[in-house]
Amino acid sequence: MVRGLAREMKGTRVTANCVAPGPVATEMFLLAGGDREERVRRAVELSPMGRVGEVGDVAPVVGFLCTDAAEWVNGQVIKVNGGYVS
């Protein structure tokens, strides 16, 4: 979908990218259904970083994409997941 949007924006200097975070310690992840402790334990177990992400891990990537420095990044899905293997 993001690649199609990037093509649609051809010639406008508008870029289209997607940030795909892994498990992040947000209310949505921590409180949504099921057993919280089990979900967190499993996410930590599958993460090479040995922890779930934090908002501060994802926000800088989004911030970068909003700058002129990212003008050559287009049509990408950027995984911000600490190497999480699902």
Score class of each variant (00 low, 15 high):
residue 1 M to I: 06
residue 2 V to L: 02
residue 2 V to R: 00
residue 3 R to K: 15
residue 3 R to N: 07
residue 3 R to Y: 04
residue 4 G to P: 05
residue 4 G to W: 01
residue 5 L to R: 01
residue 5 L to G: 01
residue 5 L to E: 04
residue 6 A to T: 05
residue 7 R to P: 06
residue 10 K to S: 13
residue 10 K to G: 15
residue 11 G to I: 03
residue 11 G to S: 06
residue 11 G to F: 07
residue 13 R to G: 15
residue 13 R to W: 13
residue 13 R to E: 14
residue 14 V to E: 09
residue 15 T to W: 04
residue 15 T to F: 06
residue 17 N to D: 00
residue 17 N to R: 05
residue 18 C to K: 01
residue 19 V to H: 03
residue 19 V to P: 00
residue 20 A to S: 12
residue 20 A to E: 04
residue 22 G to I: 09
residue 23 P to N: 07
residue 24 V to P: 00
residue 24 V to T: 14
residue 24 V to F: 05
residue 24 V to R: 04
residue 25 A to L: 05
residue 28 M to C: 05
residue 28 M to K: 11
residue 28 M to D: 09
residue 28 M to T: 08
residue 29 F to W: 08
residue 29 F to S: 05
residue 29 F to P: 06
residue 30 L to I: 05
residue 30 L to Y: 10
residue 31 L to V: 07
residue 31 L to A: 09
residue 31 L to E: 15
residue 32 A to S: 15
residue 34 G to S: 14
residue 34 G to C: 10
residue 34 G to H: 12
residue 35 D to W: 05
residue 37 E to Y: 01
residue 40 V to F: 04
residue 40 V to S: 12
residue 40 V to L: 11
residue 40 V to I: 12
residue 41 R to T: 08
residue 41 R to P: 08
residue 41 R to S: 15
residue 42 R to T: 09
residue 42 R to N: 09
residue 43 A to P: 02
residue 43 A to C: 10
residue 44 V to A: 12
residue 45 E to P: 11
residue 45 E to N: 09
residue 45 E to T: 07
residue 49 M to Q: 09
residue 50 G to F: 00
residue 51 R to A: 10
residue 51 R to M: 06
residue 51 R to L: 07
residue 51 R to W: 08
residue 52 V to L: 03
residue 52 V to W: 02
residue 53 G to A: 03
residue 54 E to R: 14
residue 54 E to L: 08
residue 54 E to G: 06
residue 54 E to T: 12
residue 54 E to M: 07
residue 56 G to S: 08
residue 57 D to M: 06
residue 59 A to L: 06
residue 59 A to I: 13
residue 59 A to C: 04
residue 59 A to G: 03
residue 59 A to Q: 08
residue 59 A to R: 06
residue 60 P to T: 13
residue 60 P to Y: 13
residue 62 V to M: 12
residue 64 F to G: 10
residue 64 F to L: 14
residue 67 T to L: 14
residue 70 A to W: 03
residue 71 E to I: 02
residue 72 W to Y: 15
residue 74 N to M: 10
residue 74 N to S: 02
residue 75 G to M: 00
residue 77 V to G: 03
residue 78 I to W: 03
residue 78 I to N: 02
residue 79 K to C: 14
residue 79 K to A: 15
residue 79 K to Q: 10
residue 80 V to W: 01
residue 80 V to C: 04
residue 80 V to M: 08
residue 81 N to V: 04
residue 82 G to V: 04
residue 82 G to W: 06
residue 83 G to L: 08
residue 83 G to C: 05
residue 83 G to P: 01
residue 84 Y to L: 07
residue 84 Y to H: 12
residue 86 S to W: 03
